[in-house]
Design a protein around this nucleic acid. Structure first.
Lengths: 236, 236
DNA sequence: CGTCATTTTGATAGCACTCAACGAAGGTGG
DNA sequence: CCACCTTCGTTGAGTGCTATCAAAATGACG
C-alpha cells in the first residue's frame, strides 16, 4: 500500500563483471552444457548497469527488449493499482534472471536496493536458443523454476500474517545460503507489499515471532532463524 | 478451507480424440511451426483418460513423469495445508497444459469437473525439444505464458474480495471466448479456494456485485458480465 | 547534533471469517 | 411422479484478524 513517487534517475554503465561468476545455472537439466550457456549469455550481455534503490529498470507495459540478470543487490517486480496499492510479485537475488516475459513486461522491474544489473537482449537470446538447444534448456528450466516459486507464493493468498512471514523468511533463507543470521536486504515496506500485509502488521508479527522464540533479532534488519521455526514450518 | 477427503477412483482409458483439435498453440513465437509441434505432441500422447470430478490426476510430490493436456472439462492445481486449508493455484481449460514442472510435481493436479486429459511423457517431450527447436519454443512460450498468469494471480494477495472476484471473472471470461453469458464450470468452493476467500464471502460479494449492476446472474452458475464491470476493472 | 526515513507501538475501525440455519438443485429409489 | 437425501449455495449474527490512523522510538547520514 505504498503511495510514493519513484526516483527515475538512471545511472551510468560500468564494466568489468564476468557473467560466469554470477550465473549459477543450478537448474535441473541445464548443467550438462553449462559452458556453452555461459558463453552464449556472455556474448549477449550489455552492462552491467548500476541502479540506485527504487530506480526503475523497466516499466510495466514496456516492450520486453531486454531481460535482466542481477549481479548484485536486490531487484523486485511489481504492479501498481489505481488506488496506490502496490504488489511486489517477486524479489530477485544476485544470479537470478529478472523480467523474463514475452513481448511486453507485465510487471515493472525495479531496484529494491542499490543493484548492478546485466542486460540481455531478448530477441538475441531467443534466436540463440533456436540454434543451441542447451540455451533453450536453460531458459526453460529457469522459467519453470520461477513458475514454481511464483505458484508457491500465490498459494499464500488464503494464509494469515504469521504463515506469510514464515514462508518469506524461510524462502529467503534458503536462497541466500542458509546462514544462521539472515540479512533482510529490502525494506519492511517492500516485504509487506510482497506479502500483502501492512508494515505495521509485519512488524507486529515479527515481534510476536520473536516472543515465541521462533526467531531472534540480532541486529537491525538481521534475523536469526531458530530451529523451532523450521520444524514448525515443515508441517506448515 | 475445504476439509474433505478426495475420491481417488480412476477411470478407464478412452481413445478417439485428436490432439490437433485441442492444442491452440496461440503463444507468440510458437505458431511458426505449428504443424511440427502438433505432430511432436501427438506422437507422445497417451490417452485421453477420463477423470470424474475431484479425482486426483497427480499428487503433490509425485515424480513428474507426465504432464497433462486438458481435452475437456476443468483441471485444477492445488496445495493442501496442515490445518486442512486448500489453495487452488490455477484452473486449466481445454487446450491448456497442466502440471508442467521439473522433476517433481509441486502441486497436486485434480479434475475440478469431469474431464478428459491427455498424458504427455515429460522426458520424451524434453528430448524432442532438444532436437526440434519449435517444440522447445512452444514449451518456453507456454511456460512463460503460465508464469505471467500466475504472477497476475499472485498480485491479488493484497486486494479485497471484490477486486479478487472481479479479476477472476474477467480472466475466465477472456479465456472462455468472451461470450456475454459466462458459465462457471467449477464450484464456488473451488473459486473461493482459488481467491483466498470463503464461499460465504464469495457469495456475498457476487450478490453485492449484482446489486451494483456489475453482473447479472442469468441462471445457476451462469453470470453475465456487464460493461460497467469491464470499464471499472480496466482502471483497476 | 539535527533532520529525515524507517520501524515500532498503541487505539480504533472495518472487512472477511466463523458458526448456524435456511433454501435450491440434482440424484435415487419407491 | 413424488418423497427423500445429499450437495451446493445463500443469508444472518457475532467474532477476530488485519488495516487505518496517530505518535513515539530507532537508525542513517550529513
Amino acid at each position: 500500500m505504498t503511495k510514493k513517487s519513484v526516483d527515475m534517475r538512471l545511472h551510468g554503465t560500468q564494466n568489468g563483471m564476468d557473467i560466469c561468476s554470477v550465473v549459477p545455472l543450478d537448474y535441473p537439466g541445464a548443467f550438462e552444457d553449462e559452458e556453452m550457456v555461459k558463453r552464449a549469455l556472455s556474448a549477449l550481455r550489455r552492462g552491467p548497469i548500476r541502479f540506485h534503490r527504487n530506480n526503475v529498470i523497466a516499466c510495466e507495459g514496456d516492450a520486453a527488449d531486454y531481460i535482466f540478470l542481477v549481479v548484485s543487490g536486490i531487484v523486485r517486480t511489481c504492479r501498481m493499482f489505481q488506488n496506490g496499492a502496490r504488489s511486489i510479485v517477486a524479489f530477485y537475488l544476485p544470479g537470478d534472471l529478472a523480467g523474463w516475459a514475452d513481448a511486453k513486461h507485465s510487471l515493472s522491474v525495479e531496484a529494491a536496493t542499490d543493484a548492478m544489473v546485466l542486460f540481455l537482449k531478448r530477441s538475441a537470446l531467443l534466436s540463440v536458443a533456436t540454434r543451441e538447444s542447451p540455451v533453450a534448456s536453460f531458459l526453460l528450466a529457469a522459467t519453470t523454476n520461477e513458475l514454481r516459486r511464483t505458484q508457491e507464493h500465490a498459494s499464500l493468498i488464503n494464509r494469515n500474517a504469521k504463515s506469510r512471514v514464515t514462508s518469506f523468511l524461510i524462502d529467503l533463507w534458503n536462497r541466500s545460503g542458509k546462514t544462521r543470521d539472515l540479512h533482510l536486504p529490502m525494506s519492511h515496506q517492500d516485504i509487506a507489499d510482497h506479502l500483502g500485509l501492512t508494515i505495521e502488521t509485519l512488524s507486529r508479527t515479527l515481534t510476536r515471532m520473536e516472543r515465541s522464540e521462533l526467531i531472534t533479532r540480532t541486529s537491525h534488519r538481521t534475523i536469526a532463524i531458530r530451529d523451532r521455526l523450521l520444524i514448525a514450518d515443515s508441517m506448515n
